[in-house]
Design a protein around this nucleic acid. Structure first.
Lengths: 116, 116
DNA sequence: GCCGTGGTCAACCGTCCGGTTGAACAATCC
DNA sequence: GGATTGTTCAACCGGACGGTTGACCACGGC
């Protein structure tokens, strides 16, 4: 899976990984520290971190034999930009539709109410 | 996969689905219309729409035998809220670290300054 | 009523994903 | 040097995912 956006979205699609991100927002941590609260092996968490790292969401440095994990905030922008773009567009369309409906005389009343 | 956030992120992790969202931001469309540009069967696109619908990103109404697909903007908020929260936190941490480094006289030059 | 069109459901297939276990690697402690 | 601690690599497993084909359902047009 090549494209960065897919990697980021996909990385955050997993609740455990989102939780890891949440905890890293508070403070850097090692793999073992991160793994502690979860009921999985440290290897599984290491894999999760690899996914987050490939998505550019975290970076790992070296500090003695430990490998502290650090959250990288920049990549979030990629997502927010994408999301905001289409949300704005959709809301714009919605607003315009609203205008149309408001300006519409009851000439074109649809025989059936729109089921929710 | 129960939780809504996972569903939304996961739904947008696929480039085809993101493209569908992008096109729906411009205008509602039917399944066949949506499927046209892609090199896959209409059934595959229907599946994609099911994923987007389960994530709350689109809704399908009924209009004769057509089923126009409509983009729902609200769910985006769920994501942006989540993202913004941790991005702010991470940037805050970054800023604080910056302050620490700036305010630090070379007084504390013993090898490791991580006294709690 | 019957045909054609738009759309979904069901079964299947190959691949990816999250998890495991077991071994290996890297750096520190003694 | 050898034991210990922290982390990753490799192989494997079951389940989900994106895709296909084929059948089916729901309409509107004649």
């Amino acid at each position: 899976m090549a494209d960065p956006l897919s990697r980021v979205f996909s990385a955050l699609a997993d609740p455990t990984r989102r939780d890891i991100v949440a905890r890293l927002a508070v403070a850097d941590a090692t793999v073992n520290e991160l793994a502690a609260p979860y009921d999985v092996t440290v290897q599984a968490v290491s894999k999760h971190l690899k996914v987050l790292e490939d998505a550019g969401l975290v970076s790992r440095s070296r500090e003695a034999q430990r490998r502290p994990v650090h959250l990288e905030a920049e990549v979030f922008d990629l997502m927010t930009k994408w999301i905001e773009r289409y949300r704005r567009q959709a809301e714009e369309r919605y607003r315009r539709l609203d205008d149309v409906l408001r300006d519409m005389p009851d000439a074109v009343l649809p025989q059936e109410g729109t089921a929710s």
